[in-house]
Amino acid sequence: HNLTITQGKLFFHYNPKLCLSEIHKMEEVSGTKGRQERNDIALKTNGDQASCENELLKFSYIRTSFDKILLRWEPYWPPDFRDLLGFMLFYKEAPYQNVTEFDGQDACGSNSWTVVDIDPPLRSNDPKSQNHPGWLMRGLKPWTQYAIFVKTLVTFSDERRTYGAKSDIIYVQTDATNPSVPLDPISVSNSSSQIILKWKPPSDPNGNITHYLVFWERQAEDSELFELDYCLKGLKLPSRTWSPPFESEDSQKHNQSEYEDSAGECCSCPKTDSQILKELEESSFRKTFEDYLHNVVFVPRKTSSGTGAEDPRPSRKRRSLGDVGNVTVAVPTVAAFPNTSSTSVPTSPEEHRPFEKVVNKESLVISGLRHFTGYRIELQACNQDTPEERCSVAAYVSARTMPEAKADDIVGPVTHEIFENNVVHLMWQEPKEPNGLIVLYEVSYRRYGDEELHLCVSRKHFALERGCRLRGLSPGNYSVRIRATSLAGNGSWTEPTYFYVTDYLDVPSNIA
């Protein structure tokens, strides 16, 4: 807008934040220059609390790290170098490059900038070799853009010569660093050979998330399962459950009422301010606690030095998902009996873990797994792929695949051998790939016309006998059925096997 004052003059007093240069501009645009008398524009009460600059400061050096910015700028000295009290560095987070010096300023003089007072450097006698002032900004957020400017702080001049310097606002972004852990990993099994893994992005990506790394490792069953005799009275049979499938998407929606109208769909109840505040506090606490764990609990591995020492970490090797089922080394339970199943799973520490690289999504279907087997899954978020990966501390989750139908069934015939004193040795093959492992066998036998009897055969007993022995049988026709019990439950009964026990007292003698 054009402003013209045809008559009258300007009068400025007691404006401590208004620089004289701005008042002189007002004289020019209003056409009143030359009308004012000496005392109409006070030299001592206008701009006496402001830094009124008329020179431009330029930054000469900028260096960044993930949490620091090192700045240096060209030296500046007023005509009387004693008038320079120091520099004021202003900075704040700036997602967009549209910041002005006066953003967030209120009537009390406060604003949204963080201000650092910096002492002037030592003055050199040689004007050509003056030290460049600077400042190291610490405690910054990774991968965050900051708006920065600097200006001088000078003393009051009796001659009211307006001098000083100020830089333009520059924008500097800190470097990326390792992201925080992925949030809320959930693993479920939808079949006997697959596990579905879902997660949420890290709360602090500290860069642009480029991919996720998912490692999985087959877990050995508890050692007590191999040692305890679950045929003993009072000892509860062990059981394991597989990871249940995901709930429906509708039930997972946030901010939804727990109660549904019987007449149909209901609208979600909005969260109160107290609920939102509580969630923010919980989120802040979780982030602080995660940072504490990362800094205190997890110790970084030592990389190899120039002395030739090897990095103890196993090298990563990509495998196809079809090879995942046989990740671990199978060892027989008892070496003397080769027909026992290889369900003991000690994992070799030198073995390469299978892994998958996930790009542009937060889910993965891990296939080719062994049925009813526990897996430990390790999830890392990465925001750099080359020249070397920059990934987060791992988040861990466990899951067990679903049982395989008929995996616990005894394959092959049940054979028998009759000894003296009416002892019958029953023999059968253990299931080759049971659900988890076989903890015991149930032997059901009966003599024709009598009630059915049951015998429990422990895992250890089966390994020693290759089956079991029935003792003290009365003469007669017998039928026997056997079924295995694994961590997933009972298998199917075998087809009945028949044998006849004679009275050993009636056996004919070869003595003449």
Rank of each mutant, 00 (worst) to 15 (best):
Y375E: 00
C468F: 09
E417L: 09
S239V: 05
P238Y: 06
L237A: 08
T497C: 15
S315I: 10
V358G: 07
R466M: 13
E389A: 04
A399P: 03
P434I: 06
V457T: 11
M402R: 15
E495W: 07
G322E: 07
E350I: 08
Y396W: 06
F419W: 15
K278W: 10
Q384W: 12
V345C: 13
F419Q: 15
A488N: 02
G436E: 15
S392Q: 00
T340K: 13
P238F: 06
H461Y: 08
E388H: 15
V501G: 01
R316H: 06
E451A: 05
G306K: 10
D273M: 06
K253V: 02
V397L: 10
E465K: 05
S479Q: 12
H211I: 13
V393M: 11
G436M: 15
L455A: 09
G467N: 05
T386R: 08
C391L: 05
L277M: 15
S268E: 14
E224R: 09
S257N: 10
S363Y: 10
E404F: 15
S304T: 10
A381D: 00
L505D: 05
G436P: 15
A407Y: 06
T340C: 05
M402V: 11
E442H: 05
L437E: 09
R353G: 09
R313P: 12
V334G: 13
S284Y: 03
A463W: 12
R353T: 06
C267W: 01
K406Y: 08
D323S: 07
L453D: 03
S239E: 06
V501A: 06
S363R: 12
L277S: 05
Y441G: 01
L505C: 04
F372M: 05
C468N: 03
S248W: 13
G476H: 01
F355D: 03
T288I: 15
D204A: 13
W242I: 04
E310S: 12
N422E: 07
E465V: 13
S344H: 11
R466P: 06
E495K: 14
D291H: 02
V393G: 01
E356C: 08
I209G: 15
L321G: 07
H425P: 02
K432T: 06
H294M: 10
V423Y: 14
L440G: 03
K287S: 03
A399W: 02
A220I: 11
T340M: 13
W242H: 13
V501M: 14
S486C: 02
I366V: 12
K271F: 06
S304D: 11
L453S: 06
H211G: 11
Y230R: 09
E351K: 09
V414E: 03
F285W: 02
S341A: 09
I410A: 15
H254S: 06
R286C: 03
G207A: 03
